[in-house]
């Protein structure tokens, strides 16, 4: 098959997926567009070095990971902050979802969450997470990747993926509770 056909098929297969992933990370259509464009430029530039035994998806995810890491560095430079710094002590604390201190509002929030009537609040809470937390939850929940595949994307051991997912989930839960509290306080 001609290279052109392969490249076009690749775009057709992965561009939508790459865009959703990028949008989940950035929360902005413009930034997501930039991220996707850059990842595909790298694909086209390195197409000759693609080893077919590796599998196209794994190869693409590796490129996506590199673009993502570069985008994190750019983000840090642009904002002048380190993404390693915790957003708030509460969100960074808690090794797992279960270790959070019981919140009296939890039951009510959980009931509404289960009825899927809090999508907007969860979106707001999600947007406030650290970039790497958004990345790992997007890969896990939206893309449905296994821990093994996430470990390849993020270049870390499976055990680290497991603990990061757990911490990101705890941070999201805490953020949802905080967002719900703010909404209640402001009568929104």
């Amino acid at each position: 098959m001609a290279s052109q056909e392969k490249l076009e098929r690749f775009v057709a297969e992965f561009s939508e997926r790459g865009y959703h992933f990028a949008y989940g990370l950035c929360g902005s259509a413009e930034d997501a567009k930039e991220l996707v464009q850059e990842s595909f430029v790298r694909v086209f530039r390195n197409w000759e070095s693609y080893d077919e035994s590796q599998g196209l998806e794994s190869w693409y995810l590796t490129i996506l990971r590199n673009v993502f890491l570069d985008s994190v560095k750019r983000y840090e430079r642009r904002r002048g902050v380190s993404l390693d710094a915790p957003l708030s002590p509460d969100r960074e604390a808690g090794g797992s979802l279960a270790e959070n201190i019981a919140d009296p509002r939890e039951d009510g929030v959980l009931d509404r969450l289960c009825r899927e009537s809090m999508v907007a609040e969860v979106g707001q809470a999600f947007a406030g997470l650290k970039v790497e937390q958004k990345a790992i939850l997007t890969l896990c929940d939206v893309e449905g990747l296994s821990y093994e595949r996430i470990s390849r994307v993020l270049d870390c051991p499976v055990g680290t993926v497991r603990s990061r997912v757990s911490r990101a989930r705890a941070a999201l839960k805490q953020a949802v509770l905080e967002t719900d509290g703010e909404v209640a306080a402001h009568g929104l």
Partner: peptide
């Protein structure tokens, strides 16, 4: 239940 609800909410986020 929290886990399932949070995962479902993340999946339900609108994606352009």
């Amino acid at each position: 239940r929290w886990l399932f609800a949070l995962k479902a909410s993340v999946r339900a986020q609108p994606r352009p």
